[in-house]
Simulated scan of single mutants.
Amino acid sequence: MSLPLGILLFIATILGMEIFAYAAHRWLMHGPGWFLHASHHRPRTGHWELNDLYAVIFAIPSITLIAGGVQLGWGDWATWAGAGIAGYGAIYAGFHDVIVHKRINHRYLPKSDYMKRIIQAHRLHHVVETKEGTVSFGFLWAPKPEDLKAELKRRGHAGVRAPVGSFRD
Protein backbone atom coordinates (compact mmCIF):
# COMPACT_ATOMS: atom_id res chain seq x y z
CA MET A 1 0.00 0.00 0.00
CA SER A 2 1.35 3.44 -0.87
CA LEU A 3 2.09 5.94 1.88
CA PRO A 4 -0.61 8.44 0.77
CA LEU A 5 -3.23 5.67 0.67
CA GLY A 6 -2.12 4.44 4.10
CA ILE A 7 -2.40 7.93 5.56
CA LEU A 8 -5.85 8.29 3.99
CA LEU A 9 -6.92 4.98 5.57
CA PHE A 10 -5.49 6.13 8.93
CA ILE A 11 -7.52 9.38 8.78
CA ALA A 12 -10.66 7.57 7.56
CA THR A 13 -10.34 5.14 10.46
CA ILE A 14 -10.11 8.00 12.96
CA LEU A 15 -13.26 9.56 11.47
CA GLY A 16 -15.01 6.19 11.45
CA MET A 17 -14.07 5.70 15.08
CA GLU A 18 -16.03 8.85 15.97
CA ILE A 19 -19.15 7.20 14.53
CA PHE A 20 -18.36 3.95 16.35
CA ALA A 21 -17.60 5.80 19.61
CA TYR A 22 -20.87 7.75 19.40
CA ALA A 23 -22.86 4.52 18.95
CA ALA A 24 -20.93 2.66 21.65
CA HIS A 25 -21.31 5.56 24.09
CA ARG A 26 -25.02 6.05 23.43
CA TRP A 27 -26.27 2.48 23.13
CA LEU A 28 -23.65 0.36 24.93
CA MET A 29 -22.25 2.53 27.71
CA HIS A 30 -25.63 4.13 28.45
CA GLY A 31 -27.30 0.76 27.89
CA PRO A 32 -26.16 -2.71 28.99
CA GLY A 33 -22.63 -1.43 29.71
CA TRP A 34 -23.84 1.13 32.26
CA PHE A 35 -22.47 -1.07 35.07
CA LEU A 36 -18.99 0.07 33.98
CA HIS A 37 -19.82 3.55 32.66
CA ALA A 38 -21.84 4.67 35.73
CA SER A 39 -18.54 5.23 37.56
CA HIS A 40 -17.75 7.95 35.03
CA HIS A 41 -20.90 9.92 35.89
CA ARG A 42 -20.07 10.02 39.60
CA PRO A 43 -17.34 12.00 41.33
CA ARG A 44 -14.06 10.08 41.02
CA THR A 45 -12.50 9.13 44.34
CA GLY A 46 -9.17 7.87 43.02
CA HIS A 47 -7.10 8.02 39.87
CA TRP A 48 -8.97 5.17 38.17
CA GLU A 49 -12.63 4.35 37.65
CA LEU A 50 -14.38 1.20 36.44
CA ASN A 51 -15.19 3.00 33.16
CA ASP A 52 -11.45 2.92 32.32
CA LEU A 53 -11.89 -0.74 31.38
CA TYR A 54 -13.50 0.48 28.15
CA ALA A 55 -10.08 1.81 27.05
CA VAL A 56 -8.66 -1.70 27.47
CA ILE A 57 -11.62 -3.30 25.67
CA PHE A 58 -11.44 -0.85 22.74
CA ALA A 59 -7.65 -1.25 22.46
CA ILE A 60 -8.00 -4.95 21.62
CA PRO A 61 -9.06 -4.42 17.96
CA SER A 62 -6.23 -1.90 17.48
CA ILE A 63 -3.62 -4.24 18.89
CA THR A 64 -5.03 -7.17 16.91
CA LEU A 65 -4.99 -5.26 13.61
CA ILE A 66 -1.48 -3.88 14.12
CA ALA A 67 -0.13 -7.31 15.10
CA GLY A 68 -1.98 -8.90 12.18
CA GLY A 69 -0.59 -6.37 9.74
CA VAL A 70 2.97 -6.40 11.03
CA GLN A 71 3.44 -10.04 12.15
CA LEU A 72 0.73 -12.18 10.57
CA GLY A 73 0.74 -10.98 6.97
CA TRP A 74 -2.78 -9.53 6.92
CA GLY A 75 -1.55 -6.62 4.84
CA ASP A 76 -0.68 -2.99 5.31
CA TRP A 77 -4.37 -2.04 5.50
CA ALA A 78 -4.59 -3.79 8.90
CA THR A 79 -1.60 -1.88 10.27
CA TRP A 80 -2.95 1.50 9.08
CA ALA A 81 -6.47 0.76 10.38
CA GLY A 82 -5.11 -0.44 13.73
CA ALA A 83 -2.98 2.68 13.96
CA GLY A 84 -6.08 4.79 13.17
CA ILE A 85 -7.96 3.17 16.06
CA ALA A 86 -4.96 3.86 18.32
CA GLY A 87 -4.81 7.44 16.99
CA TYR A 88 -8.46 7.96 17.91
CA GLY A 89 -7.73 6.54 21.35
CA ALA A 90 -4.88 9.02 21.81
CA ILE A 91 -7.10 11.93 20.71
CA TYR A 92 -9.82 10.69 23.07
CA ALA A 93 -7.41 10.39 26.00
CA GLY A 94 -5.94 13.82 25.37
CA PHE A 95 -9.28 15.55 24.94
CA HIS A 96 -11.53 13.64 27.28
CA ASP A 97 -9.25 12.54 30.10
CA VAL A 98 -6.72 15.37 30.13
CA ILE A 99 -8.50 18.50 28.86
CA VAL A 100 -12.10 17.92 30.02
CA HIS A 101 -11.68 15.79 33.15
CA LYS A 102 -8.21 17.08 34.11
CA ARG A 103 -6.83 13.69 35.04
CA ILE A 104 -3.48 15.38 34.48
CA ASN A 105 -3.29 18.86 35.91
CA HIS A 106 -2.91 21.60 33.29
CA ARG A 107 -3.64 25.25 32.61
CA TYR A 108 -5.10 24.86 29.13
CA LEU A 109 -7.91 27.30 28.38
CA PRO A 110 -9.82 26.72 25.14
CA LYS A 111 -9.65 29.64 22.74
CA SER A 112 -11.17 28.25 19.55
CA ASP A 113 -14.95 28.06 19.15
CA TYR A 114 -14.58 24.36 18.28
CA MET A 115 -12.80 23.45 21.53
CA LYS A 116 -15.18 25.56 23.61
CA ARG A 117 -18.13 23.83 21.96
CA ILE A 118 -17.02 20.24 22.46
CA ILE A 119 -15.85 20.87 26.03
CA GLN A 120 -19.14 22.51 26.98
CA ALA A 121 -21.12 19.76 25.22
CA HIS A 122 -19.22 17.11 27.16
CA ARG A 123 -19.83 18.94 30.43
CA LEU A 124 -23.55 19.09 29.60
CA HIS A 125 -23.39 15.32 29.01
CA HIS A 126 -22.11 14.96 32.57
CA VAL A 127 -24.77 17.06 34.29
CA VAL A 128 -27.00 13.99 33.94
CA GLU A 129 -25.99 11.32 36.42
CA THR A 130 -28.44 8.65 35.30
CA LYS A 131 -28.35 6.11 32.48
CA GLU A 132 -31.17 7.86 30.59
CA GLY A 133 -31.73 11.48 29.66
CA THR A 134 -28.16 12.30 28.72
CA VAL A 135 -27.30 14.52 25.74
CA SER A 136 -24.22 14.68 23.48
CA PHE A 137 -22.47 11.35 23.00
CA GLY A 138 -19.72 12.26 20.52
CA PHE A 139 -16.14 13.23 21.32
CA LEU A 140 -14.88 15.03 18.21
CA TRP A 141 -18.24 16.43 17.14
CA ALA A 142 -20.99 17.86 19.32
CA PRO A 143 -24.23 19.77 18.86
CA LYS A 144 -24.41 23.43 19.88
CA PRO A 145 -24.53 23.84 23.68
CA GLU A 146 -27.69 25.98 23.33
CA ASP A 147 -29.44 23.04 21.61
CA LEU A 148 -28.27 20.65 24.33
CA LYS A 149 -29.50 22.96 27.10
CA ALA A 150 -32.87 23.26 25.36
CA GLU A 151 -33.10 19.47 25.09
CA LEU A 152 -32.32 19.04 28.80
CA LYS A 153 -34.99 21.63 29.62
CA ARG A 154 -37.49 19.91 27.30
CA ARG A 155 -36.90 16.67 29.20
CA GLY A 156 -37.68 18.44 32.46
CA HIS A 157 -34.05 18.15 33.60
CA ALA A 158 -34.62 14.44 34.34
CA GLY A 159 -31.54 12.92 35.94
CA VAL A 160 -29.70 16.23 36.17
CA ARG A 161 -27.34 16.36 39.12
CA ALA A 162 -28.43 18.75 41.87
CA PRO A 163 -26.13 21.71 42.41
CA VAL A 164 -23.56 21.23 45.16
CA GLY A 165 -25.01 22.11 48.54
CA SER A 166 -28.67 21.79 47.49
CA PHE A 167 -31.24 19.23 48.54
CA ARG A 168 -33.72 17.42 46.33
CA ASP A 169 -37.24 16.61 47.51
Rank of each mutant, 00 (worst) to 15 (best):
P163A: 14
V70W: 09
V160E: 10
P145W: 00
A59E: 04
R168D: 13
Y54P: 05
V70D: 00
S136G: 14
L72N: 02
T130R: 13
H96R: 11
K131A: 12
E146L: 01
G68I: 01
K149I: 09
H101L: 05
V70N: 00
A162D: 12
I66N: 01
Q120F: 08
V135E: 14
Y108S: 01
I60G: 09
R168H: 08
V56M: 13
L109W: 04
D76N: 08
N105K: 15
V98F: 05
G73A: 04
T134K: 12
P145Y: 00
L109K: 12
A55T: 05
I57D: 02
G82N: 08
E129C: 12
Y88S: 02
K116S: 06
E151P: 06
A55K: 01
I85L: 14
I57P: 01
A158S: 12
L109M: 06
Y54F: 15
F137N: 04
Y114A: 02
D52A: 06
D147E: 14
W80Q: 07
L72Q: 04
T79H: 05
K131N: 11
R154M: 09
A86I: 03
D76L: 08
V100K: 03
A90R: 01
G89E: 01
I104W: 09
F58Y: 14
Y88R: 04
L140Y: 08
G89S: 02
D113N: 14
V56R: 10
Y108L: 12
A86G: 14
S62T: 04
F58D: 07
F139E: 09
L140T: 02
G73S: 05
T130V: 13
K149M: 11
A81E: 11
G156W: 09
A158T: 12
A83L: 15
G159F: 10
P163H: 11
I118W: 11
L65G: 03
K153N: 15
I66H: 02
D113V: 11
W141H: 07
P145R: 00
L53N: 04
A142H: 06
D52K: 02
G73R: 04
W80F: 13
H106L: 02
S112Y: 13
G69R: 00
D147H: 08
D97L: 08
W77N: 04
S136K: 05
N105Q: 15
V56G: 11
L53I: 06
H106E: 03
T79S: 14
V70P: 00
F139W: 12
F58W: 13
